[in-house]
């Protein structure tokens, strides 16, 4: 199949962005209230959590990895924080402990991947299972859902508050996107992540401390997961740990890949994640307004993802000679 030359020069990110704009226009024309400020804000707010998780995933994926334990980490660390506040720990301490737990777990994941050399897919899968199991067995016992107590105080504003009319989750997501952008673009560590993702052996030979950087990558994604979890929990006044069994982690991968980040590492930027997040946001919002059933929404989302990767493979065909071995 041959595409005209101009189309051939489009990247997947641009294709997805075009699709997003088209859908945005279609929805604006066909759906009532779609363009209303309140709807746009709620659209953004609904994907803020996904976007933050996507940023964490982006950092991991850029360094040629994947983090399937993010949702479990997010659910358990935040649920434990809430549980600690409920049993009387001061809010500050509880938040610190929860964050510490999240960072510790992701650091363990990182060590397993960097030092024990367990494949990332597998290590994060197992750590996700372990974190969920450990949390349910020893940190929050007896119940699936932990409700936010009144003592949560100012921290409930993370999910519910507004600043200058804009919901805090959106601001947080934007702030984190800027930080991630600056980190990846201007810091040496950020560059090292790219280098490792591009060619780990070359990075090692040229003196980059490959293993510590890999651990750091997962710690950063653990931090992002904790922030996303706080937003989720404070927005709905509870943390449901059964979220671990849902398709959420797949959605996170979806927005990262959709935007054109290469799962084999080294290619991608914050912009790609934003584009992917916006597409999902517009899509889900539109479908919700149209009152489409949740399962069908899933199908549509998946089909769009499929379309994006098929288009990518047709426009930028992968060559048998240059394909990387073991790249699944």
């Amino acid at each position: 199949m041959r595409f005209p030359k101009r189309l051939g020069s489009l990247s997947q990110e641009q294709i997805v962005f075009l699709i997003t704009i088209c859908m945005f226009l279609v929805f604006s024309l066909t759906l009532d209230n779609f363009l209303a400020t309140s709807n746009i804000l709620s659209l953004l707010r609904s994907v803020a959590v996904l976007g933050i998780l996507g940023l964490g995933m982006l950092i991991v994926v850029l360094g040629r990895g994947i983090d399937l334990s993010m949702v479990a980490n997010m659910a358990i660390s935040v649920a434990w924080t809430i549980q600690l506040v409920r049993v009387g720990m001061p809010l500050g301490w509880a938040l610190t402990t929860g964050l510490g737990f999240s960072l510790l777990m992701s650091a363990i994941t990182g060590v397993l991947i960097a030092y024990a050399e367990i494949p990332a897919i597998f290590a994060t899968l197992a750590m996700g299972t372990f974190i969920y199991g450990f949390g349910r067995a020893h940190l929050i016992t007896g119940t699936d859902v932990v409700y936010l107590p009144a003592e949560f105080g100012w921290a409930s504003a993370i999910g519910q508050g507004k600043l200058a009319g804009i919901p805090v989750p959106i601001l947080l997501a934007i702030a984190m996107a800027i930080i991630a952008y600056l980190f990846l673009r201007y810091s040496k560590l950020g560059w090292n992540i790219f280098n490792i993702g591009d060619n780990q052996s070359a990075a090692r030979i040229s003196g980059i401390p490959v293993r510590p950087v890999i651990v750091l990558k997962y710690v950063l994604s653990g931090g992002a997961a904790y922030v996303a979890g706080l937003i989720t929990a404070t927005a709905v006044q509870s943390m449901n740990t059964r979220i671990v069994n849902s398709n959420m982690i797949y959605d996170v991968i979806l927005i990262v890949v959709l935007g054109g980040v290469s799962l084999s590492g080294g290619r991608g930027s914050v912009r790609n994640v934003i584009v992917g997040t916006l597409l999902i946001g517009v899509l889900v919002n539109g479908m919700t307004i149209m009152d489409i059933q949740y399962t069908i929404q899933n199908v549509i989302k998946s089909l769009i993802l499929l379309l994006a990767i098929v288009a990518d493979s047709l426009i930028n065909p992968r060559d048998e000679q240059t394909g990387q071995q073991g790249d699944i």
Binding site: L112, A116, E117, I118, P119, F122, A123, L125, A126, M127, G128, T129, F130, I131, Y132, G133, F134, G135, R136, A137, H138, T141
Partner: peptide, 24 residues
């Protein structure tokens, strides 16, 4: 019949251990 989280916890640990050994 352990409490509800123990299953995944044991599974996750066993998995990590086994894969670690296998990789090494």
């Amino acid at each position: 019949g352990l409490n509800s989280g123990s299953g995944p916890m044991v599974l996750g640990l066993a998995l990590l251990f086994a894969v670690f050994i296998d990789v090494r």
